[in-house]
Design a protein around this nucleic acid. Structure first.
Lengths: 234, 234
DNA sequence: AGGGGTCGCTAACTTAGGTTAATTTTTGGT
DNA sequence: ACCAAAAATTAACCTAAGTTAGCGACCCCT
């Protein structure tokens, strides 16, 4: 498995807690904490030494610039580990929930101790980090070398693939709580241009992005346009 | 320590091999292999399962696009670990040397076995990965949300800081083998615009970038222009 | 039910950065 | 010392994306 997304395994809301490799729904004895939409889990420059493991919901990892701009670095989803750092000290990015979310806040020390005492755990973390690396790297390629259309298309395809892996995508599309503003901060463009671009993609009958839902109209052409290769997400 | 750059410790060429935490100049019994400038250490889509630890020299980690464009993701230097992946299978990026370089090619299996058997090693890898994450994330912020001047300034400051950490930077500047073309592929812009931008930076007496050497003319103003905060490199 | 927010959408205009093309300088090989 | 190739540089022009501005459609308050 590529992510830790199987811990805890996806299950229908309200179902009985399933036994997972973590043993139960706690991670290191820490229960998932609920967060409201738009709540901030941590801020860049926080000294507080917590790592977050997402259990459910959508979150944004971003870095704000002095002039008020921000760049969204990743959209951590179910199973993703966020905020692992090489040293204690201030973080460099903020994490916010955009939907209701359940997240395990793990003290860094607890995690590093576990890594030291149990090799298999370290390799799990390392794998998760390697995957994040790949995602952010591809994101960089996207922003650095693809134009608005391809860039947007590529991101929407990435989202679909990631959601599929955690069982949150249907055949023809997927639910997506992102606003066009947030999309702009992900893609490194202005909201106005995002709007234009989404219109184009809709007119070309490739994808339709509208509040709450993304519909794949012609996945094949979209993949071709974006030059999307999903391997980096494995 | 933040990177593995202290293993082996930098030493004058021709000197006696210094004893390091690795025990000697080998890593997992593997000696550093020399690479010529412009040689390619691995290609994206390679199935071969090797991780690289840079001993000396400059390298580029990049991803090529079908249309011939490429985005350079990172410039791994002395001590950096490159190519750690979550699963066996094709890589998603290529690695090339741009100077003479010495690099330890480590089979993935050897490294993961070691992680499993020795916790402290896993945490070293995890820390290195976390640092790479931070660097690539900041790179993304740079390309996504800073204009040509700030972006270029920011990158040149990052390089200085990273080189300083491995003892490869002097007071007023540092040696840098990057061409303007390569700079363009790092910064997600065209070589022509890189040239324009460097000219501006030189005229403004902030930095002077010319073949082989970067000279800091006014570091304070440059840092201010770029909004550079070096903490993410720790 | 009125009012302040955010969000989506569009149009008109501006600009940073891309494109094309050509010249000079530097580098590396023999 | 000579040649070929790569790297740097500049100018003129063009376009993708940014900026500014304005208008409805929904929220969620109280």
């Amino acid at each position: 498995m590529q992510t830790l997304s199987q811990y805890p395994a996806p299950r229908p809301p309200g179902g009985t807690p399933s036994q997972t490799e973590w043993g139960n729904n706690d991670i290191l004895g820490i229960a998932a904490r609920p967060y409201k939409p738009h709540s901030i889990l941590c801020r860049q420059d926080d000294e507080e030494d917590t790592i977050f493991i997402i259990k459910s919901g959508w979150t944004l990892l971003y870095r704000g610039l002095p002039d008020g701009d921000r760049q969204i670095i990743d959209t951590p989803l179910q199973g993703d580990i966020v905020g692992f750092r090489s040293v204690p000290g201030p973080r460099f990015a903020s994490l916010a929930a955009i939907t209701d979310a359940a997240v395990h806040p793990i003290p860094r020390k607890a995690l590093t101790d576990l890594i030291l005492s149990e090799g298999s755990f370290g390799s799990k973390i390392a794998r998760s980090l390697a995957r994040t690396n790949a995602i952010v790297a591809e994101h960089l390629v996207n922003v650095g070398r693809r134009n608005a259309m391809r860039r947007t298309a590529h991101f929407l395809l990435e989202l679909e693939e990631r959601l599929t892996k955690v069982g949150l995508s249907a055949e023809g599309g997927y639910d997506c709580p992102l606003t066009q503003n947030e999309l702009a901060d992900i893609l490194g463009m202005t909201p106005i241009h995002v709007n234009r671009t989404l219109r184009e993609l809709r007119r070309a009958e490739l994808v339709s992005f509208k509040t709450g839902h993304v519909e794949m109209l012609n996945r094949k052409s979209l993949i071709k346009l974006a030059g999307f290769e999903k391997e980096y997400l494995s």
